[in-house]
């Protein structure tokens, strides 16, 4: 019996954002990457196109990540005091599509590094790898406002993805993106209305930026409230497909950042005998978090564990088969 498939007719699609810039385009990247552009819910190839595969970025720090559990840190033992080498290893050995540099050293409670220090690091990473880059500050808004602008200026034309613009602190990042031709992460606290409002605010500064916004809807780790993030994302993506252009941006999730602070990722099997091997469990926790978010429509996953990255890339290969 022939079953008549139920295919949704959507009115719209997710905007496509280009990351990075080659020499011809005013940057130094070996290639650019496109993200977004879907005209269907995640991987439903039967009713629309998924022109670009979700990307996996690997996160590197500009200080030694003392707080990472040994099972994670050990992958980078030989490089974690050299961000350039670290980035190169992520790309060449572990297949990272992009590199996300987190300028932890700028944190006033860590090293309070200056914009100049951060620029020197960024330059090293730009030289070491050809992939497009994501740039995160230290996470403290006041300090980040003083480094993101100079970093953006120093890398003018590279079309970085700059993080993060928030509702009450978006101007410095958005204007840096505008002035020096970069993309911007618009982060909202798992709230669709705030996500939209923030995009509107950014667009008021510069309409062309609308095609250079990537939404961070804020995610939680598996087992730590991820279902809220998942549902908010599903709603946002559905809204985008139904024609809400102010929500129709590709999305990014800080998966590694959420997962690697949680108990499941570092508690040893001795301390928690029922939970199995710590190294594999923590890797699986990161991969499972990422895999779950892919089903809600996540376009860029920022991750840490190379094995989790490998697994997720295989899953993405499978999901991209029509």
């Amino acid at each position: 019996m022939a079953v008549e498939l139920l295919k949704e007719k959507y009115r719209s699609q997710v905007r496509e954002v280009v990351l990075g810039a080659t020499k011809e385009e005013g940057g130094t990247r070996s290639h650019t990457l496109k993200v977004g552009g879907e005209s269907a819910l995640p991987f439903l190839h039967f009713e629309g196109t998924i022109p670009n595969r979700p990307l996996v970025a690997m996160e590197i720090w500009d200080i030694v990540p003392e707080e990472w559990p040994a099972s994670l840190k050990s992958f980078f033992e030989d490089v974690y005091d050299d961000p350039g080498a670290w980035a190169k290893k992520c790309v060449e050995e572990y297949g990272a599509d992009l590199i996300a540099v987190r300028f932890k050293s700028a944190d006033p409670d860590i090293k309070d590094a200056s914009a100049e220090d951060c620029i020197a690091t960024l330059k090293k990473v730009l030289e070491a790898v050809g992939v497009p880059l994501i740039v995160y500050g230290c996470g403290k808004a006041e300090k980040d406002n003083t480094i993101i602008g100079p970093l953006a200026e120093a890398a003018e034309g590279e079309n970085l993805l700059l993080g993060v613009a928030e509702q009450d602190n978006y101007k410095s990042v958005a204007s840096a993106a505008m002035a020096y031709k970069h993309c911007v992460i618009a982060q909202s606290p798992i709230d669709i209305n705030i996500a939209k409002q923030l995009n509107i605010l950014i667009a008021e500064m510069s309409t062309p930026l609308l095609d250079r916004i990537v939404i961070d809807p804020t995610v939680a780790a598996l087992g730590y409230g991820i279902e809220y993030s998942y549902s908010i994302m599903e709603r946002a993506r559905f809204g985008a497909l139904q024609g809400d252009r102010m929500l129709a941006m590709p999305t990014i999730a800080n998966v590694g950042h959420e997962v690697w602070s949680k108990k499941e990722s570092y508690i040893s099997e001795e301390e928690q005998p029922g939970w199995g091997d710590q190294a594999e469990r923590s890797m699986a926790w990161e991969a499972a978090t990422a895999g779950a978010l892919l089903q809600a429509g996540m376009d860029i996953l920022v991750m840490r564990n190379p094995n989790a990255v490998g697994l997720i890339k295989k899953l993405i290969d499978d999901m991209m088969k029509g």
Binding site: L222, G223, E264, W275, Q278, A284
Partner: peptide, 10 residues
């Protein structure tokens, strides 16, 4: 166990 725990949590 290390694989089933994340699955059952999800």
């Amino acid at each position: 166990k290390e694989l089933l725990l994340p699955l059952l949590s999800w």
